[in-house]
Protein backbone atom coordinates (compact mmCIF):
# COMPACT_ATOMS: atom_id res chain seq x y z
CA UNK A 1 0.00 0.00 0.00
CA UNK A 2 1.47 3.30 -1.02
CA UNK A 3 1.75 5.79 1.80
CA UNK A 4 0.14 9.13 1.08
CA UNK A 5 2.80 11.83 1.01
CA UNK A 6 1.09 14.02 3.55
CA UNK A 7 1.14 11.11 6.01
CA UNK A 8 4.74 10.32 5.14
CA UNK A 9 5.64 13.91 5.91
CA UNK A 10 3.94 13.62 9.28
CA UNK A 11 5.80 10.41 10.18
CA UNK A 12 9.13 11.93 9.26
CA UNK A 13 8.36 15.04 11.24
CA UNK A 14 7.56 12.95 14.29
CA UNK A 15 10.71 10.93 13.77
CA UNK A 16 12.90 14.00 13.60
CA UNK A 17 11.46 15.41 16.81
CA UNK A 18 11.08 12.08 18.59
CA UNK A 19 12.01 13.45 22.00
CA UNK A 20 9.41 16.18 21.92
CA UNK A 21 6.75 13.88 20.59
CA UNK A 22 7.32 11.27 23.28
CA UNK A 23 7.38 13.78 26.11
CA UNK A 24 4.19 15.43 24.92
CA UNK A 25 2.47 12.06 24.60
CA UNK A 26 3.62 11.10 28.08
CA UNK A 27 2.36 14.34 29.52
CA UNK A 28 -1.02 13.84 27.93
CA UNK A 29 -1.22 10.29 29.26
CA UNK A 30 -0.22 11.33 32.76
CA UNK A 31 -2.62 14.27 32.76
CA UNK A 32 -5.46 12.04 31.62
CA UNK A 33 -4.63 9.45 34.27
CA UNK A 34 -4.61 12.08 36.98
CA UNK A 35 -7.84 13.59 35.76
CA UNK A 36 -9.63 10.26 35.57
CA UNK A 37 -8.44 9.28 39.03
CA UNK A 38 -9.48 12.58 40.53
CA UNK A 39 -12.84 12.28 38.86
CA UNK A 40 -13.37 8.81 40.31
CA UNK A 41 -12.29 9.95 43.76
CA UNK A 42 -14.65 12.88 43.55
CA UNK A 43 -17.53 10.64 42.54
CA UNK A 44 -16.75 8.19 45.31
CA UNK A 45 -16.57 10.90 47.92
CA UNK A 46 -19.87 12.36 46.77
CA UNK A 47 -21.59 9.02 46.93
CA UNK A 48 -20.05 8.25 50.31
CA UNK A 49 -21.24 11.54 51.71
CA UNK A 50 -24.76 11.19 50.33
CA UNK A 51 -25.03 7.65 51.63
CA UNK A 52 -23.77 8.64 55.06
CA UNK A 53 -26.26 11.48 55.27
CA UNK A 54 -29.07 9.18 54.16
CA UNK A 55 -28.14 6.47 56.63
CA UNK A 56 -27.85 8.79 59.58
CA UNK A 57 -30.94 10.88 58.82
CA UNK A 58 -29.06 14.13 58.51
CA UNK A 59 -31.40 17.06 59.10
CA UNK A 60 -32.10 19.81 56.60
CA UNK A 61 -32.48 22.54 59.18
CA UNK A 62 -31.12 23.35 62.59
CA UNK A 63 -32.19 25.98 65.06
CA UNK A 64 -31.20 26.99 68.54
CA UNK A 65 -33.49 28.19 71.29
CA UNK A 66 -33.08 28.64 75.01
CA UNK A 67 -36.00 26.47 75.94
CA UNK A 68 -38.88 24.86 74.11
CA UNK A 69 -41.60 22.57 75.34
CA UNK A 70 -41.89 19.13 73.78
CA UNK A 71 -45.40 19.86 72.63
CA UNK A 72 -44.14 22.77 70.57
CA UNK A 73 -41.63 20.52 68.87
CA UNK A 74 -44.37 18.11 67.95
CA UNK A 75 -46.36 21.07 66.67
CA UNK A 76 -43.61 21.87 64.19
CA UNK A 77 -44.31 18.64 62.40
CA UNK A 78 -47.71 19.93 61.35
CA UNK A 79 -46.09 22.61 59.17
CA UNK A 80 -46.34 21.59 55.50
CA UNK A 81 -42.97 20.34 54.25
CA UNK A 82 -41.78 19.24 57.69
CA UNK A 83 -41.68 15.48 57.93
CA UNK A 84 -39.99 15.21 61.31
CA UNK A 85 -38.84 17.58 64.02
CA UNK A 86 -36.72 16.59 66.95
CA UNK A 87 -35.55 18.37 70.03
CA UNK A 88 -32.41 17.80 72.03
CA UNK A 89 -30.41 19.39 74.75
CA UNK A 90 -26.88 20.55 74.39
CA UNK A 91 -24.30 22.45 76.37
CA UNK A 92 -20.55 23.05 76.32
CA UNK A 93 -18.63 22.15 79.43
CA UNK A 94 -15.06 21.66 80.63
CA UNK A 95 -13.31 18.33 80.41
CA UNK A 96 -10.86 17.23 83.07
CA UNK A 97 -7.42 16.15 81.85
CA UNK A 98 -4.17 15.13 83.53
CA UNK A 99 -2.25 18.16 82.37
CA UNK A 100 -3.38 21.08 84.54
CA UNK A 101 -2.43 23.68 81.99
CA UNK A 102 -4.38 22.15 79.16
CA UNK A 103 -7.90 23.46 78.57
CA UNK A 104 -10.23 20.96 76.96
CA UNK A 105 -13.93 21.44 76.33
CA UNK A 106 -16.66 19.02 75.32
CA UNK A 107 -20.17 19.50 73.99
CA UNK A 108 -22.80 17.32 75.61
CA UNK A 109 -25.64 16.44 73.31
CA UNK A 110 -28.71 14.47 74.31
CA UNK A 111 -30.13 11.68 72.22
CA UNK A 112 -33.92 11.42 72.39
CA UNK A 113 -35.78 8.19 73.05
CA UNK A 114 -37.51 6.19 70.37
CA UNK A 115 -36.93 5.21 66.78
CA UNK A 116 -36.13 7.18 63.66
CA UNK A 117 -33.73 9.53 65.36
CA UNK A 118 -32.45 12.45 63.32
CA UNK A 119 -28.68 13.03 62.99
CA UNK A 120 -28.20 9.47 64.12
CA UNK A 121 -24.87 8.18 65.38
CA UNK A 122 -22.83 5.80 63.26
CA UNK A 123 -21.11 3.04 65.22
CA UNK A 124 -17.36 2.79 65.03
CA UNK A 125 -17.00 0.68 68.15
CA UNK A 126 -19.25 -0.37 70.98
CA UNK A 127 -22.81 0.94 71.42
CA UNK A 128 -24.55 3.55 69.28
CA UNK A 129 -26.57 5.06 72.11
CA UNK A 130 -25.71 5.29 75.78
CA UNK A 131 -28.15 2.91 77.46
CA UNK A 132 -27.62 3.34 81.15
CA UNK A 133 -27.20 6.54 83.02
CA UNK A 134 -23.57 7.73 83.16
CA UNK A 135 -22.86 6.14 79.81
CA UNK A 136 -21.59 8.28 76.94
CA UNK A 137 -20.90 7.83 73.27
CA UNK A 138 -17.74 9.70 72.25
CA UNK A 139 -17.12 11.30 68.85
CA UNK A 140 -14.40 9.42 66.97
CA UNK A 141 -12.07 12.35 66.26
CA UNK A 142 -11.95 13.29 69.94
CA UNK A 143 -11.50 9.69 71.05
CA UNK A 144 -8.57 9.17 68.69
CA UNK A 145 -6.91 12.44 69.65
CA UNK A 146 -7.14 11.75 73.37
CA UNK A 147 -6.70 8.00 73.15
CA UNK A 148 -10.09 7.24 74.65
CA UNK A 149 -11.39 3.68 74.22
CA UNK A 150 -14.60 1.83 74.93
CA UNK A 151 -14.65 0.95 78.60
CA UNK A 152 -12.64 4.00 79.69
CA UNK A 153 -13.84 6.44 82.28
CA UNK A 154 -13.85 10.15 81.45
CA UNK A 155 -14.52 13.22 83.58
CA UNK A 156 -16.42 16.24 82.27
CA UNK A 157 -16.86 19.12 84.69
CA UNK A 158 -20.42 20.42 84.71
CA UNK A 159 -21.40 23.46 86.76
CA UNK A 160 -18.29 23.04 88.87
CA UNK A 161 -18.95 19.40 89.68
CA UNK A 162 -16.85 16.50 88.36
CA UNK A 163 -18.84 13.68 86.79
CA UNK A 164 -17.53 10.22 86.11
CA UNK A 165 -18.79 8.80 82.80
CA UNK A 166 -18.33 5.38 81.26
CA UNK A 167 -17.50 5.24 77.54
CA UNK A 168 -19.95 2.82 75.95
CA UNK A 169 -19.26 3.60 72.33
CA UNK A 170 -17.08 5.42 69.80
CA UNK A 171 -19.22 6.91 67.05
CA UNK A 172 -19.33 9.19 64.05
CA UNK A 173 -22.05 11.74 63.46
CA UNK A 174 -23.12 13.56 60.27
CA UNK A 175 -23.19 16.90 62.08
CA UNK A 176 -19.52 16.63 62.95
CA UNK A 177 -17.81 15.11 59.96
CA UNK A 178 -15.56 18.13 60.21
CA UNK A 179 -15.32 18.95 63.88
CA UNK A 180 -15.85 22.68 64.33
CA UNK A 181 -16.70 24.20 67.66
CA UNK A 182 -18.42 27.11 65.93
CA UNK A 183 -18.30 28.87 62.56
CA UNK A 184 -15.22 30.78 63.59
CA UNK A 185 -13.13 27.72 64.22
CA UNK A 186 -12.00 26.55 60.81
CA UNK A 187 -9.00 24.45 61.84
CA UNK A 188 -10.23 22.13 64.56
CA UNK A 189 -7.95 20.76 67.21
CA UNK A 190 -9.65 17.45 67.99
CA UNK A 191 -7.76 17.06 71.21
CA UNK A 192 -9.08 20.34 72.57
CA UNK A 193 -12.74 20.02 71.71
CA UNK A 194 -14.96 16.95 71.51
CA UNK A 195 -18.55 15.77 71.47
CA UNK A 196 -20.17 13.46 73.99
CA UNK A 197 -23.62 11.98 73.39
CA UNK A 198 -25.70 11.30 76.50
CA UNK A 199 -29.17 9.92 77.04
CA UNK A 200 -32.04 12.35 77.40
CA UNK A 201 -32.72 11.10 80.89
CA UNK A 202 -29.18 11.89 81.94
CA UNK A 203 -29.29 15.30 80.31
CA UNK A 204 -32.40 16.22 82.18
CA UNK A 205 -30.92 14.99 85.45
CA UNK A 206 -27.65 16.79 85.12
CA UNK A 207 -28.72 19.93 83.38
CA UNK A 208 -32.05 20.40 85.00
CA UNK A 209 -34.26 20.23 81.93
CA UNK A 210 -37.62 18.62 82.39
CA UNK A 211 -39.65 16.93 79.68
CA UNK A 212 -42.92 18.74 79.33
Amino acid sequence: MVVKKLNLRLFRQIKSTKGQFISITLMVIIALAIFISMNMVSDNLSVSLETFYEMTNFTDLFTEVVRIPQSAIEGLESIPGVSKAQGRVRTDVLFKVDNQNEKVRVRLISIPEGDNILNENYIIEGEKHPEKINEVAVLQQFATARNIKVGDRITPVIAGKEYNFFVSGIIANPEYIYLMENEMNLLPAPDKFGILYISEEMAQNILGYQAR
Partner: peptide, 16 residues
Protein backbone atom coordinates in the same frame (compact mmCIF):
# COMPACT_ATOMS: atom_id res chain seq x y z
CA UNK B 1 8.48 22.59 -0.80
CA UNK B 2 7.99 20.09 2.03
CA UNK B 3 11.29 19.94 3.84
CA UNK B 4 11.14 16.31 4.87
CA UNK B 5 10.05 14.87 1.55
CA UNK B 6 12.41 14.14 -1.33
CA UNK B 7 12.04 15.82 -4.72
CA UNK B 8 10.11 12.87 -6.07
CA UNK B 9 7.88 12.73 -3.01
CA UNK B 10 7.17 16.45 -3.23
CA UNK B 11 5.89 16.01 -6.75
CA UNK B 12 4.01 12.88 -5.69
CA UNK B 13 2.30 14.91 -3.00
CA UNK B 14 0.61 16.88 -5.76
CA UNK B 15 -0.05 14.03 -8.18
CA UNK B 16 -1.66 11.86 -5.51
Amino acid sequence: LMANLTAKENVELATE
